[in-house]
Amino acid sequence: MAPALVWLTALMVVPCALVLALAFFRRGIYGGIDYTFTLENFGLVFDPLYAGIFLKSARIAGTATLIAVVIGYAAAYAISAAPRRWQPVFLFFAVLPFWSNYLIRTYAWIVLLNREGLITQLLRWLGYTGEPPSMLYTEGAVIAGLVYNYLPFVILACYAPLSRLNPELAEASRDLGASAATTFRRVILPLTVPGIAAGAVFVFVLSIGNFVTPALLGGGRFQMIGNLVYDQFLTANDWPFGAALAMALIAIMLLVLMVQALAADRASGRAAQTKGDADG
């Protein structure tokens, strides 16, 4: 316990406190920091220009989450339905890209989506002669990059409850007269929601703060909050405003995590409560 506490304090609490403190100061005229107290930085976060970037980031992260959950759940379902001895192999291949460098994986998408990239070449080979489609440096490219990079998390998070599911539950549902689709909707899906929620929160939190993928696949003009924070610290040299933006981002992430924790807690708490009632 104690080593973990020291580690947490030194690497999490102190840096966050420093950044938080920074947000309450003024920017110096020549960059740097003017140590006079102000709330201006937080006011600026709600400026329509920056609030718009927050909203756009949330929308992109939300879209990426939705797509990743649909694909990831389907993949996890397929893996859990495969013969037992093959499942670790399929899981290994599903997670394999994750062991290569994030930047390399993102650059690979540039090679794919480029105007004269692999997809365009494939279209040409299939007989397409028109303008090459512009796919790189779009919102779609950013979403594709995010989905691709965080898919393994979703697959692992959804595989866990799916593989633990007693296969006789689905059989019992069929035996009682349910079609395969009804069995999925009323038995399999509700019992695997915790995995979906865990995977979704993971993708959303990692996506909304991401700055590498929008920078590489979205092009220079494309901004998400992560890029904004990055720019304030390293380009505009406005550390106090960067700190305020970072704090707002952390607040959003904490909110999402808290909602998930609360929902999970309520689900288990309700069961415990009815148990108490029944025993009493």
Binding site: E168, L169, A172, R174, D175, A178, S179, P190, L191
Partner: peptide, 20 residues
């Protein structure tokens, strides 16, 4: 005939009650 279309029901060894 698929299991959901026959007038036969099975009580599973594990009972297979829906936990939710």
């Amino acid at each position: 005939t698929p299991p959901n279309k026959r007038p036969v029901n099975l009580m599973f060894q594990s009972y297979a009650l829906f936990p939710h």
